[in-house]
């Protein structure tokens, strides 16, 4: 039996195809404005990768902000549900999931069975999301891939005043003019983002183990900053952290199809 999980995020659509033989496709697609057509294309590519025909697909479950645009009359689930299901399958010790995506951050408290106890979300302010870090990397004229790495070389903690992405852009420019090393500015940006994410997660209560998912989990600078802010020795990070929502959706699809 073959099922699909789709996560239609603000910046990318992720698709996971599952069967009892295991995972057969992981596809990421950067959509244009036509979300529905982009989502259809993402699913088609995933079916090609997994060598599956559309009619073999028993069920589709979609999550993410754009989930209503998913093709094939899918069942819809919220992001916290999908995150919880996905992470507990890969890292069963997880009790708190922190998901930082392009346009939102989320803290989810879960049970050992992968059920959602509580969650908090910051979805309407760019300052607590990947968008903030991308904008800061641009102001520093750094590639987003290098941005986190550079912050690890910081020698001092410079304070950042601005909390808003728009105001922080000009603050970064003045820091550059004051000859502050890019590594120090980069660390300040990561610390600021981490403190926002930490505050949001504290609202649900932080229980170990804590896992970080979403595209930002690839950023070693952010991982270190978050560990520092939360005083954590270890922060669990699954393989392909940006696909956890899609995996969770696929696992839910499988469960629903079996029942």
């Amino acid at each position: 039996m073959v099922v699909a999980g789709m996560d239609l995020g603000a910046k990318a659509i992720k698709v996971v195809i599952l069967s009892e033989k295991g995972v057969s496709a992981k596809v990421k697609l950067f959509p244009d404005l036509d979300m529905a057509q982009s989502a259809r294309k993402a699913l088609e590519e995933a079916l090609v990768q997994s060598g599956t025909e559309l009619h073999e697909l028993k069920r589709i479950v979609a999550t993410g902000t754009g989930r209503s645009a998913a093709p094939g009359k899918p069942a819809l689930v919220t992001e916290p549900l999908a995150d919880a299901k996905g992470i507990i399958a890969l890292l069963p010790l997880t009790r708190t999931v922190i998901d930082v995506g392009a346009e939102e951050g989320r803290g989810v408290k879960i049970t050992p069975q992968g059920e959602v106890v509580d969650f908090a979300v910051n979805e309407k302010c760019a300052a607590g999301s990947g968008a903030f870090m991308e904008s800061m990397a641009r102001s520093l004229e750094l590639k987003i891939e290098d941005f986190g790495e550079i912050s690890l070389k910081a020698t001092q903690a410079v304070p950042m005043n601005a909390q808003c992405t728009v105001f922080a852009e000009s603050e970064v420019v003045s820091l550059i003019h004051a000859n502050t090393p890019k590594s120090d500015i980069s660390r300040a940006v990561h610390d600021a983002t981490a403190s926002r994410i930490a505050a949001m997660t504290r609202r649900v209560g932080i229980e170990k183990e804590v896992a970080l998912i979403g595209g930002v989990a690839y950023n070693p600078g952010f991982v270190e900053a978050l560990k520092r802010t939360l005083s954590l020795e270890t922060l669990l990070i699954p393989d392909h952290p940006d696909f956890i929502g899609a995996l969770g959706a696929a696992l839910i699809a499988y469960e629903q199809a079996v029942n």
Partner: peptide
């Protein structure tokens, strides 16, 4: 559910990236 079976190849299977 038999989770280990469903998520086998999670680490190894490559990601394919596309743009609209």
């Amino acid at each position: 559910l038999d989770f280990p079976q469903l998520i086998s190849q999670w680490e190894t299977l490559p990601v394919h990236v596309f743009t609209a």
